[in-house]
Design a binder for these strands. Structure first.
Length: 285
DNA sequence: CCCCAGTCCTGCGGGC
DNA sequence: TGCCCGCAGGACTGGG
């Protein structure tokens, strides 16, 4: 589930360890199928031990730990991965530990219940090749209406499906795609090439508005309770969801029941009244 | 170019 | 009451 706001919250939580040195890296004895760690743990250990953490960045939905050597440790949480400085929700699913040196001690943990996530170590050049601008679109937090329009203006795809394509825009997942389209008053099945200039403007504005607000609330912890920040605390944005997961409940603006459809094998939630296919409403809320 | 189905994985909830 | 199936979806792959 972690999308841009959740990964950004993880990143900010990790900023407290900038300047610290890594004393050890160990794969933890999770009894389940191991997550992907590349290179293998012994090789990875040789390249990270003794390195200091220069910065913690974000590439779309990935946390990027920048080491003094220039190597980048890229943590990709996918559905249930967490980056933790505190005790995990369930120690059974701890996957990797980066022990920090110094009198404060402490560790960075990677925890992942379903284990779909990965941890990879890249050189600067590898990072640029794997997660550079041609692999990852502009960040959703700072993208402009022109970014979207120039990349999708001639596409026949449905706007909701296109927003999930990380090569178009980086950081948007199923939850926030639904929320920003609602705020922009755009029907999720509307073809990209049918969007007006005004709608692209509203979409870009809605994207930054929704994502920034979600970051202020430290992301969304859904019913399964999986997502937590680096200190193992819940997010708060789930209480502000307007459409996601609210099928049958009233639209906060017009009161009509929120509907659910399936696009590209994923649930899409929206309000038929406020997100018309033809002439859409003015910006919502 | 784009779509679709399948893959990974665990927990949970609906249905019988 | 208990069990099984399907769903949740981020990224990727292979076929059309």
């Amino acid at each position: 589930m972690p999308e841009l706001p959740e990964v950004e919250t993880m990143r900010r939580g990790l900023l407290t360890v900038v300047g610290r040195r890594i004393a050890d890296a160990e794969r933890l004895a999770c009894p389940r199928k191991p997550i992907a760690i590349r290179p293998r743990i012994d090789h990875l250990r040789r390249r990270v031990v003794g390195q200091s953490i220069d910065d913690v960045a974000r590439a779309g939905k990935r946390v990027v730990v920048v080491l003094t050597s220039g190597d980048r440790l890229v943590i990709e949480p996918r559905m249930t991965g967490l980056v933790l400085l505190a005790d995990p929700p369930d120690p059974l699913y701890l996957r990797l530990r980066l022990r920090l040196s110094g009198r404060n001690g402490g560790s960075i943990y990677y925890w992942d219940r379903r284990g779909l996530g990965s941890v990879r170590l890249f050189t600067e050049a590898q990072f640029a090749a794997e997660l550079g601008p041609h692999k990852l679109g502009p960040d959703a937090l700072t993208m402009t209406a022109d970014d979207c329009r120039s990349r999708l203006g001639h596409s026949k795809r449905a706007i909701k499906v296109a927003l999930l394509d990380q090569t178009v825009v980086a950081g948007i997942g199923n939850l926030y795609a639904a929320e920003m389209l609602y705020v922009a008053g755009i029907h999720p099945a509307k073809r990209c090439d049918k969007l007006t200039r005004r709608e692209w403007d509203r979409l870009a504005a809605a994207a930054s508005e929704v994502l920034e607000e979600a970051i202020r609330y430290e992301g969304s912890t859904l019913g399964d309770g999986t997502y937590r920040n680096a200190l193992n605390q819940n997010g708060g944005y789930q209480n502000l969801h307007r459409v996601y997961g609210r099928e049958g409940q009233p639209c906060p603006r017009c009161g009509a029941a929120i509907v659910r459809i399936v696009q590209a094998q994923r649930s899409t939630f929206f309000c038929k009244g406020c997100q018309a296919m033809r002439q859409s409403a003015t910006k919502i809320v």
